[in-house]
C-alpha cells in the first residue's frame, strides 16, 4: 500500500510543482501510515529523480520510453494504472494542469477509483477520505468525500507548502508494457510560444492608467511584463487616447480578465475598470492618490509615485528570480 505521485518533467527537469506534489503526497502518506512512490515518464537523470527524496519520495518508478513523448492520453493513463497496480497504491496524485487533467479521469475509470480534481491543501480527513476544492469558479469551497478504495486526486498548484522530508530514495526502472497499438496520437508539429503573452491567457497582468502620464513612459511596465511573463493591459482613457493598443483595454467595456495577479499602476479604479478585473485572485495597486477607489479592491497597495516604485519593483523581481 502506498501513495503514488505522477511527477511530470520539463525537458528532463522537475519544477517546484513536482516538489510541491511530493510534499503533499508525503503528508497524506504519513497520515495513512504508508510511503510515497513517484512515477516519472521520460528522460530524467538519476540525480534529478533522486531529488524527489528530499520531499519524502522513497521510491521512483522510472519509465524511459520515447513512445510516451506524444502524451497519448490513453497510453499514459494505462501506464500510470500499471504502476498503481504494481505498487498497490491507494491514493494517486497528479497535478491539476494540462497533463493531470488529461490523464486522471481516464485513470480513475481504469482503477475503479473515485476522483476529485483541483484539490487544495491536505485532506480534511483520510478516514473517511474527505478533501477540499474550489467550486463555482473560485467563488466557493466544497468538501467532498471519495468513497472508493482507490482515490485519484489532481492537486491545485500553490495550495500546499513545499516541505523537506528527506528519505532514502530507490530509483527503479519500470516498464508498464504498453503495446505499440495503444499509441495513436501523432504529433505533427510543436510550437513553443515565445514573445507576447495573450492577455486572456496571462496568469499575471501588468496594467497602466493615466497616471503613467504618456506612452513614452511604458518602458518600466514592459520590462516588468517581460520579467514576470505577464500580459499587458491598460485602462480605458489610455486606449482612447491611443497611448496603448485597443486590445489592451480592460474594464467593463474592454476585456474582462481574471489572472492570478493584476498589477495596476496609475489607475484610479473607476467602477468600470474594476468590473473588468475584480475576479483576479490578487490585485495590486500603485497610485499617488490615497483616496483612489482602486485601493478598495486591491489586496496590496502602495501610495506613491509610479515612476519611483516601478524601478524598485523590477529590481526586486530580478533578485527574486536569481
Amino acid at each position: 500500500m502506498s501513495v503514488l505521485v505522477y511527477t511530470e518533467n520539463w525537458e528532463g527537469k522537475f519544477k517546484k510543482l513536482s516538489y510541491e506534489l511530493s510534499s503533499f503526497a508525503y503528508a497524506i502518506a504519513k497520515e495513512m501510515g504508508s510511503s510515497v512512490t513517484a512515477l516519472s515518464i521520460g528522460h530524467v537523470a538519476d540525480d534529478e529523480l533522486k531529488s524527489l527524496g528530499k520531499y519524502g519520495v522513497s521510491k521512483v518508478l522510472n519509465v524511459q520510453d520515447n513512445r510516451f513523448e506524444s502524451l497519448d492520453n490513453k497510453a499514459v493513463a494505462d501506464a500510470i494504472a500499471k504502476a498503481v497496480a504494481s505498487e498497490n497504491a491507494k491514493v494517486v496524485i497528479l497535478a491539476h494542469n494540462n497533463e493531470g487533467k488529461a490523464f486522471a479521469p481516464r485513470l480513475s475509470v481504469k482503477l475503479n477509483a473515485g476522483m476529485v480534481t483541483g484539490v487544495i491543501g491536505l485532506p480534511v480527513s483520510v478516514e473517511p477520505f474527505v478533501v477540499k476544492k474550489k467550486v463555482f469558479t473560485q467563488k466557493a469551497f466544497a468538501r467532498i468525500q471519495i468513497k472508493t478504495d482507490v482515490k485519484v486526486l489532481t492537486f491545485a498548484q500553490n495550495s500546499f507548502d513545499v516541505v523537506e522530508n528527506p528519505v532514502d530514495t530507490a530509483v527503479e526502472a519500470f516498464d508498464p508494457q504498453i503495446g505499440d497499438g495503444e499509441f495513436t496520437t501523432k504529433v505533427l508539429d510543436t510550437h513553443k510560444i515565445t514573445g507576447k503573452i495573450l492577455l486572456s491567457d496571462a496568469e499575471i497582468v501588468v496594467s497602466g492608467g493615466r497616471g503613467m502620464k504618456g506612452p513614452e513612459n511604458w518602458g518600466g511596465l514592459e520590462e516588468m511584463g517581460d520579467l514576470l511573463g505577464a500580459g499587458m493591459a491598460c485602462s480605458r482613457p489610455v486606449s482612447d487616447d491611443g497611448w496603448r493598443p485597443k486590445e489592451e483595454h480592460v474594464g467593463q467595456t474592454g476585456k474582462i480578465i481574471a489572472p492570478n495577479l493584476y498589477l495596476a499602476f496609475g489607475i484610479s479604479g473607476a467602477i468600470q475598470h474594476v468590473a473588468g478585473v475584480s475576479s483576479s485572485k490578487y490585485i495590486v495597486a500603485v497610485n499617488k492618490d490615497p483616496e483612489a477607489p482602486i485601493f478598495e479592491s486591491a489586496d496590496y497597495g502602495i501610495v506613491g509615485d509610479v515612476f519611483k516604485v516601478i524601478p524598485q519593483l523590477n529590481e526586486a523581481i530580478k533578485e527574486m528570480k536569481s
Binding site: 473515485g114 469551497f141 466544497a142 468525500q145 496590496y300 524598485q312 519593483l313 529590481e315
Partner: peptide
C-alpha cells in the same frame, strides 16, 4: 456515484488592502 459533496463554504470577505511604503517597494 463515487464521491459525495458533503458541504460548502464561502470564502472569507475581502481583507483590507495591505499597504506597503513607497520607499520600500521591494
Amino acid at each position: 456515484a463515487r464521491t459525495e459533496f458533503l458541504g460548502y463554504e464561502l470564502p472569507e470577505p475581502k481583507a483590507a488592502c495591505k499597504m506597503v511604503d513607497e520607499d520600500n517597494a521591494k
